[in-house]
Amino acid sequence: MLSAIVVNRMEPRYADRVAGLFADLDATDFPARMGTRRRELFAFDGVYLHIQDFPDSDGLAVIDEAWRDADPRFVKICADLTPIVPPYDDTCVAHEDHIAVRSYAWEQS
């Protein structure tokens, strides 16, 4: 399984709005189309964390495909989120610039 963690900024007052946007998206077939197994959103001191689990390591390729295909639901949620969940680092230009890099993993066998 792959966990992709998107790191951005978010003012606490937007937490419910962002959760609602994802609840609406997750009520469609879009998560299944992307292979999303689980999604969690966290906020901590102005930092926004969006954890998305995929069944295998091709999860990031699926995100890339959603960008290339320009699925209207993906385009819409990105447009809705952009003004209220800005990049953590203003130098980020591509969506993969917002994804945390794993530095350690352990799993019980």
Rank of each mutant, 00 (worst) to 15 (best):
D71T: 05
E65D: 12
D26V: 10
D26C: 09
F22Q: 08
C78Q: 12
E40T: 14
I77P: 00
M34E: 14
I77H: 04
R68N: 09
D26N: 15
T91S: 04
T36C: 11
P83T: 03
P55T: 02
D97P: 00
A79V: 04
Q52R: 03
T28G: 06
E96T: 08
R68E: 11
I63A: 13
V47T: 15
T82R: 04
Y88Q: 00
F44N: 07
D24I: 03
I84R: 01
Q52P: 00
C78I: 15
Q52V: 02
T36I: 12
P87R: 02
I77G: 00
W67C: 06
T28C: 12
L21N: 11
D29T: 08
M34S: 15
P55M: 00
T36W: 13
F42M: 11
V18N: 10
S57M: 15
P87L: 02
G59L: 00
Y14L: 09
R68M: 15
R38V: 07
V85C: 02
G46S: 14
D64T: 06
M34T: 15
V85A: 02
D58K: 12
L81P: 00
L60S: 13
A19S: 14
R38E: 07
A66W: 07
F22T: 05
P87Y: 02
A23K: 13
A43R: 15
S57Q: 11
P86V: 00
D97Q: 11
Q52G: 00
R13P: 14
D53N: 00
L41W: 13
P55C: 04
R38I: 07
H50T: 03
Y14D: 10
V75N: 03
L41F: 09
C78G: 13
V18C: 08
A32H: 10
W67S: 09
D16A: 12
D64A: 10
C92A: 05
L60Q: 04
Y14Q: 11
R37G: 14
L25S: 15
R68A: 08
F42T: 13
I84T: 01
G20A: 07
I63F: 08
C78A: 14
Y14C: 05
D90L: 09
I51D: 06
P72C: 06
V62N: 05
F74R: 05
A23S: 09
D26T: 13
I63S: 06
H95E: 04
G46P: 12
D58S: 14
F44Q: 08
V18W: 02
V75C: 02
R13Q: 11
K76N: 02
D26L: 12
A66F: 06
L41P: 06
A32T: 09
D89N: 01
D58V: 06
D89V: 07
F44V: 14
D29H: 12
L25Y: 07
V93A: 06
T91Q: 03
D53H: 01
R33C: 07
F44K: 14
M34G: 11
W67K: 04
P87V: 03
F22N: 05
P31F: 05
C92N: 04
F42S: 15
Y88R: 01
P55G: 04
L21S: 09
Y48N: 15
D80L: 05
P83Y: 05
K76P: 02
A43Y: 07
